[in-house]
Design a protein around this nucleic acid. Structure first.
Lengths: 231, 231
DNA sequence: GTGAACTGAATTGTATACAATAAGCGATCC
DNA sequence: GGATCGCTTATTGTATACAATTCAGTTCAC
């Protein structure tokens, strides 16, 4: 279910990092939340040593920020960072979708369809966090079909950061959530129509950013709130 | 000189990671070299704790590989990984060069020119490692001019990995090293000619891969050698 | 009442100690 | 002679201890 980063040891610190990451993906841990090492250590039944390793991993993925002597917090991407993340995705994902389409197998189609179904049921079961996570996994799955581990790793990170961005700047939770962009993408992949997949992905990402509220104000108010000592 | 990853604490573990990374960039530490924690700790005058943190950082950047209970080694990118790295660069850097060209300032031009000059002198001074490092920094500098931190971080990682790839698969050390691709790129940037910069970057990256020997054999022989117990 | 300085608790940074695992090597058996 | 088993050593994984720093609440001066 979470099998990226095979390059590293799969020690307990990766378990900690993975479970924290999942909580962040599913919006159970919200941006700005402080992650005290002792608490996390006790929750997972390990020592601070392994917690620190896990937090460092998450910091490298920009899911948490580390400040010297001031601890770890779930990251709060700025508006600028939000734009950058989606610009990077716009650079990587459409072409990757094209590559994926050209090598999609029936097994891939089945797997993606299962993903979409699961996402729908999660949404109707009133678990939007899980639906969001599955929605992100759909993008990652496409990158994996393209069979490009390096780019897939980048996209994985960008999808994770997008989850934080959505937590902060999601404007209209109404429509779009139920959008059938993923269905259309899946059909293009099943048809092995690379050009169409590329276009659909490009449009899908544009829809995503346009559903965010990236005006300058929210970030200011947020940092103000932090400046007032409340976190 | 080395100011990436401002998101993390700039503790001593980053110093360790930075110095190890520099040694890898400059080919003073070659792929496959084992990095024993105690040795590194003594060399840098810190404890294993901070060395481990630094190694983890480098592992995340794919500069070293960590195997559970078996320690850290300078990474040996496979041929497949080498191809992927340059495909990712081909996806990111040309467009980034275009963006950079559209916002290049005279100060940027001066800085890049200084880079090129330094690279030439290093090359003629018989320090190819330093020249290679500077050559990589040139690419990173362009990404920074484009003012996209996220993509710049990706490119930084890809450039670093490219250094390892070059150490393993560099075929003709003769020409190309002295190529004037960077000069041409700089001129396009100075002219704020985005389209030309994009094309030049695309061609430059193609030249780079074509100067590598990415046939299937070397990797096999290398893994064979490792299979025989020598590392 | 406001603000600066101080004190104690809480938290992080680093080093070290111990346990667990892997690697090296010699003796033994076939 | 070659391979295998077992022991010793080296190295890593994890926990804990202590030092350094930050944070919150209080006191004190104005």
């Amino acid at each position: 279910m979470m099998d990226d980063a095979r390059h590293a040891m799969d020690g307990s610190s990766d378990t900690v990092a993975g479970r924290l990451a999942l909580a962040i993906h599913e919006h159970r841990l919200l941006p700005g939340t402080k992650l005290v090492e002792d608490e996390v250590a006790e929750i997972f039944g390990v020592s601070r040593t392994v917690v620190r390793a896990g937090l460092q991993r998450l910091a490298h993925d920009r899911l948490v920020t580390l400040q010297r002597n001031r601890g770890a917090h779930v990251a709060q991407p700025t508006i600028r960072e939000a734009r950058e993340v989606f610009e990077a995705r716009a650079l990587l994902e459409p072409r990757t979708a094209r590559s994926a389409a050209e090598r999609t197998t029936p097994a891939d189609v089945a797997r993606l369809q299962a993903h979409i179904d699961e996402e729908h049921t999660a949404l109707h079961a009133g678990d939007p966090g899980r639906a969001l996570r599955l929605s992100g996994l759909f993008h990652i799955e496409i990158a994996r079909i393209a069979d490009q581990d390096t780019i897939c790793a980048f996209i994985t990170q960008l999808v994770a950061r997008s989850s934080l961005i959505i937590a902060l700047y999601w404007a209209r939770r109404n429509a779009l959530c139920e959008s059938h962009a993923h269905d259309a993408l899946l059909r293009a992949l099943a048809d092995r129509d690379g050009a169409r997949a590329e276009d659909l992905m490009k449009g899908h990402l544009l829809d995503l950013v346009s559903s965010l509220d990236l005006r300058a104000l929210p970030s200011t108010s947020r940092s103000l709130r932090e400046a007032l000592g409340r976190e």
